[in-house]
């Protein structure tokens, strides 16, 4: 109770401070600008029929825009452009399978996690069974991801070849230019589900890190962050978060994955 009271006081003081912050800007413009992936099903990808960007991240973005009562405007991004887009003020939020790290938290603020995953690998069947084999392999990663950094730090003998986006790395794998590619597990599952000759590939059952995915928010935008966090918690409480998850990873989808993480499990 006391914490809630303090929170109320704090938010009152913050809103009382007369300067317009990003939340006011968004409401005044009537538009929430969100960076989302355009080539990473099921998080963010261009729907072949509607030509619009859709996906799990996009569903969350829509809810946030509705909550703010404004129009949603999506900007396509690749992994490397996420932070520059946010720090240069080109977008208000990033919802693009964005892993929360301490380093990144110095540049921007994160919401509470709304998704969790671990860094995994995709390789041709039978080529990769344990992490020990990673040293000495040529491994495709995405520029500007934590996957790239973790791999370089923990497996210094692996040759990391970084591409603009995961499907490019996959093409390099398919052509034999790299022997494995690395990404968050759910993203690889989503990718593999869309590969025509998926029977030739596998995702070996080991992870080399645990990642929590959050919404990227411009540094110091406290009120905006509060709205985002509140909305995420409401989504979990109302069961809508589970519904969004099921729409993309549920048993009837191309990439069924059990939902082990709930919003609010980790602050």
């Amino acid at each position: 109770m006391r914490r809630l009271f303090l929170l109320l006081i704090a938010s009152f003081l913050a809103s009382g401070a007369a300067h317009a912050d990003r939340l006011d800007d968004i409401k005044q413009a009537g538009v929430l600008r969100v960076a989302a992936f355009d080539s990473n099903p099921p998080f963010g990808f261009v729907d072949p029929d509607s030509k619009q960007i859709v996906g799990l991240d996009v569903d969350y973005a829509k809810v946030l825009a509705d909550k703010l009562g404004v129009k949603l405007e999506l900007r396509p991004t690749n992994p490397a452009n996420r932070i520059p887009l946010l720090t240069s003020g080109k977008v208000d939020l990033v919802l693009a399978n964005f892993t929360i790290t301490e380093e990144r938290a110095k540049q921007l603020d994160f919401s509470i996690p709304y998704f969790s995953s671990g860094q995994q690998f995709l390789a041709k069947k039978g080529t990769l069974t344990s992490p020990d084999q990673l040293n000495g392999l040529r491994i495709g990663a995405d520029k500007g991801t934590t996957n790239e950094i973790v791999l370089r730090r923990d497996f210094p003998k692996a040759v990391v070849v970084a591409f603009d986006d995961t499907p490019f790395a996959f093409t390099a794998l398919r052509n034999g230019n790299v022997q494995a590619i690395t990404q968050d597990g759910p993203k690889l599952v989503g990718l593999l589900a869309n590969v025509p000759d998926r029977e030739n590939y596998e995702i070996p059952p080991f992870t080399i890190s645990d990642d929590y995915i959050g919404v990227g928010i411009p540094k110091g935008e406290k009120r905006l962050a509060d709205v985002v966090n509140e909305t995420l918690l409401e989504l979990e409480a109302s069961g809508k978060a589970a519904a969004i998850y099921d729409a993309w990873f549920g048993p009837n989808t191309k990439q069924p994955l059990p939902r082990l993480f709930k919003i609010g499990d980790k602050k």
């Binding site: 355009d38 396509p76 000759d197």
Partner: peptide, 18 residues
Amino acid sequence: GVPELSFVAAQVNNRAMV
């Protein structure tokens, strides 16, 4: 990320993948 010809081609390539 300006969706001109090369960018949308990369998107199509990324979706079709093969």
